[in-house]
């Protein structure tokens, strides 16, 4: 399992691996928002948590179809399926690798982007905390979507259509947690809900993803 994780991380870092693409996309979204809504700093500060969450979500979505598609094309997935690893473990490791290469950099970069959007000082802690808690769920749910669409020729668009509705609860609680934090309100409830969703998806969704992957390998 560790070998698979190391390999996936290595592949992401090497040329053409797509590492950093998500980050660049995140930056572009954050840059474009003020062009769209105007440069008024009070307005930007008010929408900053939501924009950062949406940007993270879209950046995550961008790299989802790579999770299995490349391994599917070159036959690695067939070979992994016959290897002595349970499919659930493969799926979980893939989700972890996806999070480490997209979610984690986004969390790290979020403060800088918050700066661009005039995020108030007291908002940084809840925002980053909400992203740390929420982005793993985004990766795990996305892995499920990728497992559903892996065999399809043009699965990319369909993947977004399937995954985005599933992202709704995570987005709501994540953004709500950040927003309440920025406003200086108590954000325990959304934080607990967000943590609950993340834990629940990590615990249960790999079984569904593995089932979908097995069906697709037939």
């Amino acid at each position: 399992m560790i070998a698979l994780l190391v390999r996936d991380l290595k592949l992401a870092m090497r040329a053409g691996g797509g590492f950093g693409l998500g980050l660049a996309f995140f930056l572009i979204v954050v840059t474009l928002v003020p062009f769209g809504v105007g440069p008024k700093s009070s307005l930007l500060a008010a929408i900053a948590p939501g924009i950062l969450w949406l940007g993270a979500l879209l950046a995550c979505l961008l790299s989802l179809d790579r999770i299995f598609a490349l391994d599917w094309e070159d036959g690695s997935l067939d070979l992994l399926a016959t290897a002595p690893l349970p499919m659930e473990a493969i799926v979980s490791v893939k989700a972890l690798a996806h999070w480490a290469t997209t979610g984690l950099p986004l969390v790290v970069a979020a403060p800088i982007f918050g700066l661009l959007l005039n995020l108030p000082v007291e908002g940084y802690k809840p925002l980053i905390l909400s992203l740390i808690l929420g982005t793993p769920a985004l990766s795990v749910i996305g892995t499920f979507g990728a497992a559903l669409t892996v065999g399809l020729k043009r699965g990319g668009l369909l993947l977004s259509l399937l995954v985005l509705p599933l992202y709704v609860p995570t987005l709501i609680f994540g953004a709500e947690m950040a927003r309440r934090g920025v406003a200086g309100l108590d954000n325990t409830t959304p934080m607990l809900m967000l943590a609950g969703i993340t834990c629940g998806t990590i615990a249960l969704l790999p079984f569904a993803s593995a089932a979908a992957l097995r069906v697709n390998l037939r």
Partner: peptide, 22 residues
């Protein structure tokens, strides 16, 4: 199967090592 499950950006050694570890 028909495909070898190789990663183009990994070296021969890395590819083989990966499968050995798995």
């Amino acid at each position: 199967g028909h495909t070898d499950g190789l990663k183009a950006t990994l070296s021969v050694l890395e590819n083989l090592n990966f499968w050995a570890q798995v």
